[in-house]
């Protein structure tokens, strides 16, 4: 294993993580909800009366994030994201992520951040499983084929 020092951003990533933790803390303590993106979005696929508004408010906040971030971050802080996958692969990946996160009841936020924070064995199994699958997939794509 070689460390990619050129892309390693320990402080920004740690601080960003703390901000993600704060968002999850606000959501559980003030709104009584688990901050899990796939669950919040997935609930809109079978909408029930009185269960829509809070999801929309949350996503409006998320939609404002890039603009607010651009005001606040130093110029040039945010380099353009590297999206190497082509459209075909992106669509296959999207279908798998949508289906998989609903089937497994959560993603990186719900199981990864919130589940591990509340010391849930179920979320630990889910997180180890999707991380393992992620490592294996990248290994296969980059080093086998």
């Amino acid at each position: 294993m070689t460390i990619d020092w050129a892309h390693f951003t320990p402080w920004a990533s740690l601080l960003g993580g703390v901000v993600l933790g704060l968002a999850s803390a606000i959501f559980i303590l003030f709104n009584g909800r688990i901050l899990g993106i796939s669950g919040i979005l997935g609930g809109l696929m079978s909408p029930r009366l009185g269960d829509i508004g809070w999801r929309i408010s949350f996503f409006l906040g998320m939609a404002a994030a890039p603009t607010v971030f651009a005001w606040w971050a130093p110029a040039g802080f945010l380099s353009a994201p590297r999206i190497d996958a082509g459209y075909g692969l992106i669509v296959i990946a999207g279908l798998m992520v949508g289906l998989g996160t609903r089937y497994g009841s959560g993603c990186t936020s719900g199981h990864g951040v919130c589940g591990l924070s509340r010391l849930s064995p179920r979320s630990l199994v889910a997180t180890l499983t999707f991380m393992g699958a992620g490592f294996a997939t990248v290994f296969a794509v980059r080093h086998l084929f």
Partner: peptide, 11 residues
């Protein structure tokens, strides 16, 4: 579900 999600994430 987690396997499917993780594989899609890695793609």
């Amino acid at each position: 579900g987690a396997l499917l999600f993780g594989a899609g994430w890695g793609l």
